[in-house]
Simulated scan of single mutants.
Amino acid sequence: MTEQFTGQLTGRLTGWKHVIWDLDGTLLDTYPATDGALAAALSGLGREVSPDTVRRLTRITLDHAVRTLAAQSGLSEAEIYFSYEQHYAVLGLNHSPAMPGALEAMKAVRTRGGLNLLATHRDRGGAMWRLKAACLDAEIDDLLCVSDGYPRKPHPALFLALLERHNLNPAEVLAVGDRNLDIVAAHSAGCRAALLLTPGVTLDTEADWVLERLGELSL
């Protein structure tokens, strides 16, 4: 596949100080565990699915992947989720490393006097143990999750709440995520947004900046 983008800036995006990070697929490389657990779940339920199919669907959202695969397989979403959680409980413990350059990028934010904030669909407990396992927890200044009572992205509520909690000017905040829903949520909150590329995934995005790697934020 080839990546397709619209509206992104070329060169270095300047003027930002703080970062609102996404977690899965951005700070942490959780996709291998997610893909593996979902494929294993379908296989265990008697439905084989190709790795490419799983990869394409989960890059939109896990909910979308389960919903689509349930419709295609004749299985219920509930039984797929149940089987998925069983497999992920094993794979997720060992296959959620920090993305290359994540720690350096977060330290660079601190060096410029900024905050590292996190807006994630994960529950708080799940987000924290993954951050600790990846040795990133010490760099996080604050996080909000959907389990705190906020709607899921692309709704901007997580972003707006973080901006209000820390009295931040949205013009000084850069949001970094790997899916277009991160970009939409950030823009709705008045922040600029950078999209981290996922290899092999085609996206049309209105991101202000496209990152091939997180290390670009350290420059």
Score class of each variant (00 low, 15 high):
Phe5Ser: 12
Gln8Glu: 10
Gly11Ala: 03
Arg12Gln: 15
Arg12Val: 14
Thr14Ser: 07
His18Leu: 09
His18Glu: 06
Ile20Asn: 03
Ile20Pro: 01
Thr26Cys: 05
Leu27Pro: 07
Leu27Ile: 15
Asp29Glu: 03
Asp29Arg: 03
Thr30Gly: 11
Thr34His: 05
Leu38Tyr: 06
Gly44Tyr: 04
Leu45Cys: 04
Glu48Asn: 15
Asp52Ala: 13
Val54Met: 02
Arg55Trp: 11
Arg56His: 06
Arg56Trp: 01
Thr58Phe: 00
His64Pro: 04
Thr68Tyr: 00
Ala70Trp: 03
Ala70Ile: 02
Gly74Asp: 00
Gly74Arg: 03
Leu75Tyr: 10
Ala78Ser: 09
Glu79Gln: 01
Tyr81Glu: 09
Ser83Trp: 08
Tyr84Gln: 07
Gln86Ile: 03
Ala89Thr: 11
Leu91Asp: 05
Leu91Cys: 09
Leu91Val: 04
Gly92Thr: 01
Ala98Thr: 07
Pro100Thr: 07
Gly101His: 03
Ala102His: 01
Ala102Pro: 04
Ala102Trp: 00
Leu103Ala: 09
Met106His: 05
Arg112Ile: 02
Leu117Ile: 09
Leu118Asn: 11
Ala119His: 06
Arg122Ile: 01
Gly125Trp: 12
Ala127Cys: 14
Met128Ala: 14
Ala133Trp: 10
Ala134Val: 03
Leu144His: 04
Leu144Lys: 04
Ser147His: 06
Ser147Leu: 09
Asp148Trp: 07
Lys153Cys: 08
Pro156Ile: 07
Ala157Lys: 11
Phe159Arg: 05
Phe159Trp: 09
Phe159Thr: 05
Leu160Gly: 06
Ala161Leu: 13
Leu162Ala: 11
Leu163Thr: 14
Asn169Met: 12
Asp178Asn: 14
Asp178Leu: 09
Arg179Thr: 13
Arg179Lys: 11
Asn180Ser: 10
Val184Met: 10
Cys191Asp: 02
Ala194Trp: 12
Leu195Lys: 00
Leu196Ala: 13
Leu197Lys: 15
Val201Leu: 10
Thr202Lys: 11
Glu206Asp: 15
Ala207Gln: 12
Ala207Glu: 04
Leu211Glu: 12
Leu211Pro: 13
Gly215Asp: 12
Leu219Asn: 15
